[in-house]
Design a protein around this nucleic acid. Structure first.
Lengths: 252, 252
DNA sequence: AAATGGCACTTGTTTGAACAAGTTTGCCTA
DNA sequence: TAGGCAAACTTGTTCAAACAAGTGCCATTT
């Protein structure tokens, strides 16, 4: 018996999730029928169905009426942290993240940054320019702007020392929501020099606005990846819509 | 009354989804309590909760125990069809999709296509090269390869006439899952000529493998967008993970 | 006036039951 | 043997009831 605080249906989902992750049932395998799960978990069918519904909504299992549920083809996804933090991402694929901080400055926001962070133009922001490395080679150049309130914490942090995202969360900053826009851009002089490509080379750009649960904007970043080193992938099915959208570009 | 085939809880979710989309309740507004919804829909609480659970899993509503559900901050996403079909996407943003088919041919698969479609190298595939337009101007160049079985249907379709995706679905082709990889690439000669950019200009590339529910690969496409005209966006929160992943590039 | 206690209301969890609808299996017939 | 039909099983939908647990408000008390 685990923590008695956990409701029965959640204990069931956790158990099933773990079993699937552990490979007890492989992709396409048939799970025990609802009746069997009822017996094994000593629960009513409603409870079991509640648990299965949760897994279904996560896309972990599939199956239609009359047929027992099967383990679905996994739709890969990354946790919020892994997707938001370069350091965490690198770790997750077995590489070591590195960084060379080129600039850390406080200055008035220009028009673009002010708009993205919903500040008055000229309000003070903290900007950081970092070259990010994967196993020692340049992979991405990030230009990030923080609101004054959050950014001031960075002056007490060695930006060559790891994950800003992680550090800010430890400091209690409520980084809750990320809105990402992905496009392609030609390398400018700075990109070319630091990433080691020729001027005008195609780069994969991710612009990101991070906000608190309250909706207050905290960070705006323009990250440019070498397309040879990083891609974005997404999967969707006619049953399991992805939250990715293709949108019309907005002039910048 | 609509189609009586639709179960009650689904009618309820549909209704609520529409009301929310229509702005009857705004972000942060309180929805009717479960009891009220029971009365209004003439349904039991279980049914109402089933409907609410569905909306909750889509991230449309939030709210904790004791508090009535509220309309959550919208995480934008697109339906499977809208994301898979250029024509449908254009329609959704109020533009007209156009196309100029440059080639429709049957030929042996090269190594890349064969690998993506899980065919023997040299197996026959149907390839189509189409320039896609938004309101008349070039926006994307698509190079798509279909397995023989699916592709043969295209010879009875006027490819200048609209959505291949829609046509194939009407013909009963089971287009179920899309796996998308997004990166940036330099325009080659053909891209430059048809899209009207200079050689080497950055393009936003989406490579896509579409498969049937059975897992059989049906289509591989390399779509190159003018980054001025289309982006991809995604949102995630620490509670609502997105299915997007940043991955290490695989050599092509 | 401020703190507290309780009541009314809300959602969360669980059970049991019944019928509908799709799938599989195996037997029986042609 | 091939086909078809029916029974047995599966999941899907819906209802009703009960208690647990969290929230908000109001009246009473300090």
């Amino acid at each position: 018996m685990e923590n008695k605080k956990q409701p029965k249906y959640q204990a069931l989902t956790t158990w099933l999730r773990q079993e699937i992750a552990a490979g007890t049932w492989h992709e396409g395998d048939v799970l025990p029928s609802e009746a069997e799960l009822c017996a094994r978990a000593n629960a009513s069918r409603g409870t079991v169905r509640h648990a299965l519904a949760q897994l279904r909504s996560e896309g972990l299992i599939a199956g239609g009426q009359g047929k027992p549920p099967i383990v679905a083809q996994q739709v890969q996804s990354q946790s919020f942290t892994t997707f938001m933090s370069f350091t965490d991402w690198a770790r997750s694929i077995g590489l070591e993240a590195g960084q060379e901080t080129r600039e850390l400055a406080q200055r008035p926001a220009d028009a673009l940054v002010a708009e993205q962070l919903e500040l008055e133009e000229g309000a003070k922001v903290v900007q950081i320019l970092r070259l990010r490395l994967l196993d020692g080679s340049p992979a991405m150049l990030e230009r990030t702007s923080f609101t004054q309130e959050v950014g001031r914490l960075l002056f007490e942090f060695d930006a060559d020392d790891g994950s800003i995202f992680e550090y800010l969360r430890e400091q209690g900053v409520d980084l809750y929501r990320g809105k990402h826009t992905i496009d392609a851009v030609a390398a400018d002089e700075l990109d070319a020099q630091l990433l080691g490509v020729r001027l005008g080379a195609p780069l994969l750009r991710e612009r990101r606005v991070t906000s608190a649960k309250s909706g207050q904007k905290l960070e705006y970043s323009d990250d440019r990846y070498l397309p040879d080193l990083a891609n974005f992938t997404i999967e969707n099915t006619s049953e399991h819509r992805a939250s990715l959208s293709r949108v019309r570009s907005i002039a910048v």
